[in-house]
Nucleic acid binder design. Structure first.
Lengths: 192, 192
DNA sequence: TTTCATACTAGACACTGTCAAGTATGAATA
DNA sequence: TATTCATACTTGACAGTGTCTAGTATGAAA
């Protein structure tokens, strides 16, 4: 224990909120409860984040940053790998992902640094699709394909995470296999 | 006014809640406010729905029923049309859709009649994919393709509805064109 | 020694969903 | 006609929440 510094309250609150979002969903986050668990007053968390939306924005910012890292790792392996990376990120960081995609919780327009991280992740996707389509593709085609790729990855991620997909398709041996198959289907049309 | 019967409270509450979900998201629904607006006591809505989750379940049940109707209309026109119908339903019934897909708001396991409507909609999708793949397709293939089709439609719907897609891809002339293009891309792989 | 930002604490407020108990009304039943 | 009973509410209370305002302890900078 010697020399161990206590976690700064900001980090403690953030981790607690992310864990609740992962296990029970973002709406189950009560800052008063988090404060009680941390042994501080009910207003201590608000000092660090301003208000409830501020906490969600902080979670979203961190989430988009982590998503970008995950996408970068898959970058060299093409669009299919990126699609897989997106879905896997969502499953591995459910707490972050659920908050990131709920713009009723945190309007990124009010949180520039969070919006910056979101833009960064989006641009990685855009670049990857642009590369895959080659230099002759029109911007219209690129945009359409980007929307398409994002839709596949985002749809699968949300359906697996919070939707009834896994239950409905029971008998599928392995979720990872499903993810790989869907990602391959999504990119097979790139050759057309 | 003669002969006009007042809207039953149940329907009034439901419509108000759906409108709030459409305009501000499901979390903005306050049953006490709805009750005040309807000029009844704060407990009157609870009489009809039991609790807050009960209202969400009622909205989800109605939503899945309407979704099934929309999918049936597109049924004869193939998987691409069904994909378009799904996305268009989401945009046209945002209040319902946002609630339907939030199973943290209403666990359909507790509301059999809502779960029944959800199953009905899913089975329409499954049938359509099965028909498109032909009689030689394995159940594994059918399940994978169904997950894929649902992912595309669901992803595009949620990104257009609550995500930053439309803003990110600004310059796209018409959302309807985008939907049609993405739906076509999704089904182009069926020929493989 | 004073100034000042940081990191909180303390108290109050309006608002929420929910539990419990009461009331008015109209149909079914004896 | 009198009683029973479910329906559709009303009323009141409770714990819990986010947020506003004001106060306090602490440590660094001037």
């Amino acid at each position: 224990m010697s020399g161990a510094t206590a976690d700064p309250l900001r980090r403690v609150v953030l981790n607690a909120a992310i864990a609740i979002a992962r296990d029970e969903g973002p709406d189950a986050i009560s800052l008063r409860k988090v404060a009680r668990d941390a042994g501080v007053s009910h207003q201590a968390p608000y000092h660090h984040f301003g208000d409830r939306a501020g906490i969600f924005a902080a979670i979203a910012e961190e989430g988009f940053s982590k998503l970008s890292e995950a996408l970068i790792k898959s970058h060299s392996q093409g669009t299919s790998a990126m699609c897989e990376a997106y879905v896997r990120f969502a499953l591995d960081h459910a707490g972050h992902f659920r908050v990131m995609m709920r713009n009723d919780l945190c309007d990124l327009g009010n949180y520039p640094s969070a919006a910056f991280q979101a833009d960064r992740a989006f641009n990685l996707l855009l670049e990857n699709v642009t590369t895959a389509l080659g230099k002759n593709a029109s911007t219209e085609t690129i945009k359409t394909r980007t929307a398409y790729m994002w839709s596949v990855a985002h749809g699968l991620a949300t359906l697996l995470l919070d939707g009834p997909l896994e239950k409905k398709l029971e008998g599928i041996a392995d979720v990872n296999v499903l993810i790989a198959h869907v990602a391959r289907l999504a990119t097979s049309s790139f050759s057309n």
